[in-house]
């Protein structure tokens, strides 16, 4: 039994290889890029607009709103990174309903790559926002003793990100594969539907966690207060 689409190799030359993960990723990239291009080819700035433009505007503004709610001051700066994370994972999940499609997020390599991107993006955004000194200072807060714990936290959360997404996606695909061998009719469909839900939830969790990490790295005093107030409100509401 295949645990990851990495194992499905189409072409290999030494260290280089072309496996299903990369191929399906390219497919997704093609769909996303061409779809975006087609939708944004004729954008209307008036009050009347096409259904696809409306859908895309809803998606983009919803992502912006989510980023803002996490506490990032200028959500547009992070939209490209966080929005693409969400759309890529969500698209990979949605495409699982296509026969013989293997979600690239079901590969630990892909989730690790995404987690590494987040791991790299957090300090980059932090440095851009606060400067190198300000960002590094955040590791020794509130005291220097917290430095190792902060470093461990950085590494562990990256690992957690990768494994969480991989686990969920891989398990969903695995369960469907197992169920197909046992009861090939009704259950796989139900589980596929459930997999869509969990996949979308994972996409949301992945991108929101990335946003929270970036927010933690870029947070200055004012947004911090806002963030705390926002959290408090959520707690009260909850």
């Amino acid at each position: 039994m295949r645990l990851s689409p990495d194992e499905m190799i189409f072409w290999q030359h030494g260290f280089f290889k072309l496996n299903a993960t990369i191929v399906f990723t390219w497919g997704l990239m093609l769909v996303l890029a061409v779809g975006s291009k087609l939708i944004t080819r004729q954008l209307s700035t008036g009050l009347e607009r096409s259904r696809w433009q409306n859908l895309m505007e809803i998606v983009v503004t919803a992502i912006l709103k989510q980023i803002e709610e996490v506490g990032l001051r200028e959500p547009r700066k992070y939209l490209s990174f966080l929005g693409t994370l969400f759309l890529f994972v969500a698209m990979a999940t949605l495409c699982t309903i296509l026969p013989s499609f293997e979600p690239p997020t079901g590969s630990l390599s892909t989730t690790a790559a995404l987690a590494l991107c987040v791991f790299a993006a957090v300090p980059l955004f932090g440095v851009r926002d606060q400067g190198l000194g300000g960002y590094l200072k955040s590791y020794v807060e509130p005291t220097v003793i917290m430095l190792p714990f902060n470093l461990i936290s950085e590494l562990s959360r990256t690992l957690a990100l990768a494994v969480r997404l991989f686990g969920n996606m891989m398990s969903g695909a695995m369960i469907i594969a197992i169920l197909l061998t046992i009861t090939p009719f009704i259950f796989p469909i139900v589980m596929t539907a459930l997999g869509l839900l969990t996949g979308l939830v994972q996409a949301y969790i992945f991108s929101i966690l990335a946003a929270v990490y970036i927010a933690a790295a870029t947070r200055t005093k004012e947004p911090a207060e806002k963030f705390l107030t926002s959290n408090k409100k959520i707690t009260i509401n909850g």
Partner: peptide, 27 residues
């Protein structure tokens, strides 16, 4: 695959920024 996927992701980020986010936000 990790490296390729990271690269793919970065390319996708650029593509999406170029073809989706910027035009939609401008509109």
């Amino acid at each position: 695959t990790v490296g390729a996927q990271a690269l793919n992701f970065l390319v996708l980020v650029w593509l999406m920024k170029r073809f989706l986010y910027h035009p939609i936000l401008r509109a």
